[in-house]
Design a protein around this nucleic acid. Structure first.
Lengths: 106, 106
DNA sequence: TTCAATCGTTCAGAACTAGTGAACTATTGA
DNA sequence: TCAATAGTTCACTAGTTCTGAACGATTGAA
């Protein structure tokens, strides 16, 4: 099989404010981003999952939304996907936005 | 007819981050809020409408979303509804959020 | 090599949400 | 009283989200 599903990541310029806000407007996704920020290193999707009750497919979908909005960068490493928040890109595009939003108490 | 549709406004404590972000995640609503902020005084719904092509019902819906998320306060004045951004409440609940988000170039 | 386990994606259907025209309510002014 | 204006509500359609089931890719062990 020579087809490989590429993980789409928007370029820095293509990150939109509406996209970022919409991605962070979901409490689950906000918690995922928070988890990823708290740990400096990458986290797999299951590690970053906010609570265990969520369906795999739902989780996968949330990570896709975050990825396509430009909030996280995902790379395949073996069997799992490692995720990092695109801090530099986000700060360049929308200075202080991430810090401001994540600054509020959960 | 003695029934009067009350305009629902959440109290300051009931304004949620997810709600605010979701409300501002729509480009149209962001522009409405921007318009309202630029003018110090109240604006009617049609005055604050970002572009003329939008259906009345759609506009009405966007204003309802903004209102129920706690972003704007609406009062009936005669035949029209006057809207103001709830700056004090928003700044108390989520300091700098509004300023940060509205600070980015359109 | 083969087999099972793990991690995540894709698919399809159900439940929910958003945009719109038409009909409606309320206020004002002639 | 009648028409005009400003918004809301309703019903319909179109699109999105959540979920279980099936699938694909990688790894480790027999």
């Amino acid at each position: 099989m020579f087809f490989m599903a590429q993980l789409f990541h928007p370029s820095r310029e293509d990150i939109t404010l509406a996209g970022v806000l919409a991605a962070l407007a979901d409490p689950l996704r906000l918690r995922i981003v928070r988890s990823l920020m708290e740990r400096k290193d990458c986290m797999s999707c299951t590690e970053a999952a906010p609570c265990p009750g969520i369906a795999k497919s739902t989780l996968s979908n949330h990570f896709r939304v975050l990825r396509e909005a430009g909030l996280i960068h995902t790379t395949k490493q073996g069997v799992e996907h490692r995720n990092v928040v695109r801090e530099a890109d986000l700060n360049a595009r929308f200075p202080k936005l991430l810090k401001t939003i994540l600054g509020y108490a959960e």
